[in-house]
Nucleic acid binder design. Structure first.
Lengths: 339, 339
DNA sequence: CTGAAAGCGCTTACAG
DNA sequence: CTGAAAGCGCTTACAG
């Protein structure tokens, strides 16, 4: 069960540690004969590099992670960022440091600028939550470092992994829950940010797929993830007396919740994430349940993945998908940090 | 932001690395004067040992973790054990190894024997899930190594941490969920293993506290965590026509679910954990929802905690409490491993 | 193309 | 009571 070391490999292959290292790390030329012998020994002995030793070396070399993520006043990405920061701190002894570009998802120019700055500063890996249009992709490709798509998937040449949720499934879970808490034919309204957001539209689809026939989906409104817009639209929606269920499947739910509270009506309400407004709504009974996307954990796991890949040199999964679970009022007692 | 090293401390305190180490690790005598100076420098520089270097050293020294946990045919503890094994493997480079004693929670003699064997084998830390009566406590105390109480809390001199769930809160969550899915006055039966199990009785209490008045708790039956017993008792319970809700708050729910399926009746059902039977019940609609106690994560975090404390020498929390979250049918798509 | 040496930070025998 | 040296496994200049 003891791990093989480079020293042992060198001995078995009749060469030196330096040469073994060159083979493993594809650094410099090695004669084909020696290379083949080394590779064979590595294979036979099932060699895996020692993480502790690599970490110790890395603490000397340093590993800069760049993160392009967030935007102010957004509690979801704040939690993702908190997870990233905590995990970077956790790996402090391995020389990992963070350059954070806290830019809004929707501000394309700011994203491009942030990527350019990271290129300038010379990072070893990038975490990014952005809408991957052509320009963003091109900018990312020009970085030539591995990257992790966090929360929003995008395509790029060096994409290591997507860490996020299954949007379709989260919508289905919302529909599933709705069907359990509604017991008679009821009109239902959905509030999303925008149906052009691929994730949010998938959520709507999942919801529609999963609801039972007693739930009659009467309207889907788009609030641009905006609280004020949300407030006005929901106020109007509530004038429809058949509406007994409202699902917020995007952001900006706090405005909508305010409209509901003021209306004096009591539709059943389902939300996603755990903004202050949602937590308050759970507490006072306005919100029946909310779907947790584990933002904090998304941050943590993104950094773990970089560590696993670049420090431990492990093969890493192509995607890490968070569980979709339901949070009710009583869950939040043990859930204070909304991780 | 750079970390101080022992070398730097030694230089600042005008002594050698060996001496600094002696102060830090309380190994051997150091003159009061030098000791005070070293401690002052450590404090001023905010010294924290380098995890990577400690790991590398540990990979040489080795760290044996003993685990007394489980019992066959119990999917909950199997998942805890899977988490422990995976995390030990994850720390393989740090020289952590595992001696697992897979003994039943309820077999006191087997537990005592396992503890004695671990003492013999000389472990550096212990993970244990057991009912902490006087004899078990005495045996644990005689080990003189730090221990983590997993899933079941117990008292012992060297207890480092309790990793588990909040039983009261899980009961409250079940009651919360029950109140959401039941819409008219309904009779309710609870099935537990035994009310002498402190966790299960707390769960019952939480449930009673959280249910709304429309739910009328008519009976609490004890099945000794046994499927056959459970089957018969639930069969009888179903003869009471007022029962529209059954909550399984202990183990042995699979027998009870079988009785419900055979009865042709359709009470609403809430369970805890995710046995095969529960997952099947979620799929076919027999079970409305189940509360996840994160057994796999409990295993993972227990090992993390040992690593954090003994390898990193960090201060660790007194307890790590899992979130109580709800799993519905649609959750399990992304939840295959029931972690 | 290849090897011997030095270094990452922490520990531990081993001398004094 | 204290210090200099060697080692954990991996990398990287630096010579050859």
């Amino acid at each position: 069960m003891k791990q093989t070391t480079i020293k042992e490999i060198a001995a078995l292959a009749g060469t030196s540690r330096g040469t073994v290292d060159r083979v493993i790390n594809k650094r410099g030329r090695v004669s084909p004969k020696v290379k083949a012998r080394v590779l064979q020994v590595i294979d036979e002995t099932n060699y895996r590099p020692n993480t502790a030793a690599r970490s110790l070396y890395m603490s000397h070399r340093g590993l800069k992670i760049g993160a392009v993520i967030g935007g102010l006043k957004n509690s979801f990405f704040d939690l993702v960022i908190a997870g990233i920061k905590d995990e970077v701190e956790h790996y402090r002894s391995s020389g990992i440091s963070l350059i954070l570009k806290n830019v809004s998802l929707f501000d394309k120019e700011a994203n491009l600028k942030a990527i350019a700055e990271l290129k300038e500063e010379g990072v070893d890996a990038v975490l990014i939550a952005a809408i991957g249009d052509e320009d963003i992709q091109a900018a990312l490709n020009s970085l030539h470092v591995p990257l992790v798509a966090v929360n929003l998937n995008l395509e790029a040449k060096n994409k290591l992994c997507f860490v996020g949720t299954n949007y379709l499934n989260s919508g289905r879970l919302a529909g599933n829950f709705a069907s359990l808490i509604v017991n008679e034919p009821t009109g239902c309204g959905i509030v999303v940010g925008s149906l052009t957001h691929p994730g949010q539209s998938l959520r709507c689809r999942g919801f529609e797929e999963a609801i039972e026939p007693k739930i009659n989906l009467t309207e889907i409104i788009e609030n641009q993830d905006e609280n004020e817009c949300s407030y006005n639209l929901v106020k109007t929606m509530l004038q429809n007396p058949s509406i007994g269920l409202i699902c917020f499947l995007g952001a900006g739910e706090e405005g909508g919740l305010k409209a509901i509270a003021e209306s004096g009506k009591h539709p059943k309400v389902i939300t996603v994430d755990q903004s202050e407004g949602v937590l308050e709504g759970l507490q006072n009974g306005l919100v029946a349940g909310t779907i947790n996307q584990h933002p904090y954990t998304q941050g943590v796991r993104s950094v773990d993945l970089i560590f696993d890949s670049l420090v431990c040199r492990n093969k890493v999964p192509k995607e890490i998908i968070m569980d979709n679970v339901l949070i009710l009022k009583e869950s939040i007692l043990t859930h204070k940090l909304a991780k």
